[in-house]
Design a protein around this nucleic acid. Structure first.
Lengths: 74, 74
DNA sequence: TTAGGTTAACCCAAATATGGGTTAATATAT
DNA sequence: ATATATTAACCCATATTTGGGTTAACCTAA
């Protein structure tokens, strides 16, 4: 991951997504469908494995019915 | 831009970056140096041309001395 | 006008994310 | 214990970002 400058924040973001998803009692599969992001990506994002894009994060935030800024309040 | 689902938000983000940069009276070149992101990327992000990564946005936020969430308050 | 600084607009190679699929592991319920 | 659902962990091809560079356009001051 040569272009990743801050993997701690990426992991925090992943945990935040997982937390919000769990709070709403939905599976990765359901979030995948709602956000139109492949379940592979959802998993990788939650595990903090990838440096995902703004567009993907926006789609996930919308699917979780939260503001994008709520995913970054750390 | 096949993976971009929300180009309006990407354009808003670019405008926000440019606004904050102008407010601090620094050039793209200076922001590029501070964030360790190439000036090409800074320009493309400000113009809303690309769907940049979380890592790059975090680096830019830090260079602008703002919270990441401040870039998404729209 | 001229020089210098700033930004835009290209090009290319490499790194990474994404989509799409499969299979294994793990948890959960019956 | 046995299904069933959920998640992890792979693989690959393709799309996109990023780095790195160059050149042009535009502005501003000397």
């Amino acid at each position: 991951m040569k272009y990743i400058r801050n993997d701690k924040a990426i992991k925090k973001l992943g945990k935040k997504v997982r937390l919000l998803r769990k709070e709403q009692n939905i599976s990765q599969s359901q979030l995948s469908f709602e956000a139109n992001v492949r379940i592979n990506q959802i998993g990788r994002i939650e595990r903090g494995e990838i440096n995902t894009s703004i567009s993907t994060i926006i789609a996930i935030a919308e699917a979780l019915n939260v503001k994008v800024k709520d995913l970054f309040d750390f």
